[in-house]
Nucleic acid binder design. Structure first.
Lengths: 226, 226
DNA sequence: GTCTATAGCCTGATAGAC
DNA sequence: GTCTATCAGGCTATAGAC
């Protein structure tokens, strides 16, 4: 990305960063254990031994990538908990943002068993993070309820939350199987978001339905952030 | 299973069958590419070379297992399409049955990319089967609509069907992550069924809700079929 | 026809020398 | 930062016993 801009000290993209970026891309495409360290090195354009210089083990690489997810997630959580705005649009904004985070780090959610297998040290951290994110969505649901956007019978909440997690995480697999799409692109994100939104749909108030339409009207395909 | 009953010729459990059974169990636990041929042989209690005698490649083994799924699925499809009964309970029965099939062969659904990677020949067959099962669920939904059990706005149907597929397939992964459960047992099936049922819940008529309660009241934990 | 023992071959992660 | 060696493990194959 920013090859020309150098703000402070080292805006220059370091080899380490390039490794992380390349690994993320490959992992997202095929899952960590269908990607070899050799391939990562080749993609970056460095030697395999050089990769070893930065990350002694594949586990270390996975750890570093997970820290990025933790960073994104906690930034998001802070933002949501600090929210005092009453603008209804804020929620659809959050939902899109949360969805983006999952998308960027999707291999972790999708191939979690494999990730844990090669990086056992990530067992608890992943669990904790998943819990935390679930709480945030729960909190958002409560705020939305207070804002008369949605009304979910209290008995249905746990199941709804679980389904939101499941669909947010695995819609892409469905898409690639059912539709034969193998290279997912930003416009497919819109499809996924629609799937998740449809879980809320039956519970939305009229006001909520309006907001939903607005959210779905905006497109990930136009986002530069991805 | 049937060790005592011998109907026709060879009800005796053959080595081949034992291989298939052991492989299915291991694959369901950890996914095909986290299970070695050596381990399968060890589990069966035979030599690795003997396994080779029956299945020259791992792909051949996966193909044989897939044929079993095809058998179960087509038997189910025939049963559903042939249905003329009007008893509302028939639908919850079908749903449980369909859910069981996915469960028994869950590694295929869960680790499909991995399966295809080691058995490229299964690409089209899996796709075809997935399509077929989706059509069946669609058909059931229509029958249920006609029976006044459910009323889904026509625009919501595709998203609902997709979500049913996604949740049916991946609820187990959620459970193992979120709750830290790693050995899923039949009683967990009840949890999964509840998740899937909750997708329909907002659209059910009063009659439909009653049927749902009855279905959820029965427990997989008591089923001997699993 | 069924099974065991054993070996070859290949891939991929790790490591140390340069 | 780079190259090459090592080492483990997985799939496939063969020879021959029962």
């Amino acid at each position: 990305m920013g090859a020309g801009d150098d703000g402070k000290k080292t805006t220059r993209v370091t080899t380490r960063d390039r490794i992380l970026e390349a690994a993320l891309g490959l992992f997202n495409d095929r899952g960590p254990d269908r990607v070899t360290t050799a391939e990562i090195a080749r993609t970056v354009g460095i030697n395999e031994g050089n990769l070893y210089y930065y990350f002694k083990t594949k586990e270390a690489l996975l750890q570093a990538l997970f820290e990025k997810l933790e960073g994104d997630a906690s930034a998001f959580m802070v933002k949501v908990s600090a929210n005092t705005a009453t603008d209804p649009g804020i929620y659809s904004d959050y939902m899109r943002r949360w969805f983006s985070i999952i998308w960027v780090h999707r291999y972790i959610f999708r191939d979690l068993p494999g990730v844990i297998a090669t990086a056992p040290s990530l067992r608890e951290p992943t669990r904790a993070l998943s819990m935390g994110m679930r709480l945030v969505v729960d909190g958002m649901l409560q705020q939305m309820t207070a804002a008369n956007l949605i009304d979910v019978p209290v008995d249905d909440v746990p199941q709804l939350l679980a389904n939101v997690w499941i669909v947010s995480t695995y819609w892409a697999v469905f898409l690639s199987l059912q539709e034969g799409i193998d290279d997912l692109r930003p416009e497919h994100l819109d499809w996924g978001l629609k799937q998740v939104a449809s879980l809320f749909k039956p519970y939305l108030s009229e006001l909520g339905k309006g907001e939903l339409q607005i959210m779905l009207g905006r497109s990930f395909a136009l986002d530069k952030a991805l």
